[in-house]
């Protein structure tokens, strides 16, 4: 178990040295997080969505159990669907499975995280710290880049950030 972790960590360490790393990307154990982003919020908004891609580089399935942030009273995982023209959002219980060797993308219009009870409005350019807790990989610290409210995809967020 411990030995298995060593190789990917070393690999990621080398990758970090070799390539210019996007500031907000994060990794721990077999889990790597790319493009964590969120949207700016209006003064009246007390919630905000959070999006990112979680990759499991290992050979064992992992699970995102929970998320916490100093900038929100609570952070939850939600699904979002538009069914028969009606938007429905529901809290996900028990976390999200991150299958071995696969990437799971949390994005607008699908499963995403929700910052609930914002301490203050999110402003473009702010970085929102959060800790993701995984069943196997443990805690991973990430920073969600706040993008303009009109941002609808990680690609746009990525462009805006450079």
């Amino acid at each position: 178990m411990q030995f298995r972790f060593l190789i990917p960590i070393t690999g990621l360490g080398l990758a970090m040295l070799a390539a210019p790393l996007v500031a907000q990307d994060a990794a721990k154990g077999n889990i790597s997080i790319s493009d964590p982003w969120t949207r700016e919020t209006a003064a009246s908004q007390t919630v905000g969505g959070g999006f990112m891609t979680i990759r499991n580089n290992g050979q064992s399935a992992d699970r995102l159990l929970s998320i916490a942030s100093s900038q929100a009273a609570e952070v939850q995982i939600h699904t979002m669907r538009v069914e028969a023209g009606v938007m429905k959002m529901r809290q996900v219980q028990g976390g999200i499975a991150i299958p071995a060797g696969k990437a799971v993308t949390l994005k607008p219009g699908a499963t995403h995280i929700m910052f609930i009870g914002l301490k203050k409005p999110f402003k473009p350019g702010d970085m929102i710290p959060a800790t993701l807790r995984f069943e196997r990989a443990g805690s991973v610290k990430v920073r969600f880049a706040v993008q303009a409210i009109g941002t609808t995809s990680a690609a746009e967020a990525h462009h805006a950030g450079h």
């Binding site: 009246s44 908004q45 905000g48 969505g49 979002m80 538009v82 219009g109 995403h112 409210i149 009109g150």
Partner: peptide
């Protein structure tokens, strides 16, 4: 509604675009 974190900003941003 303004606290709608996803479909509302996505839709209004889409209309703007």
């Amino acid at each position: 509604f303004t606290r709608c974190p996803d479909v509302c900003p996505t839709t209004l941003a889409r209309l703007a675009l």
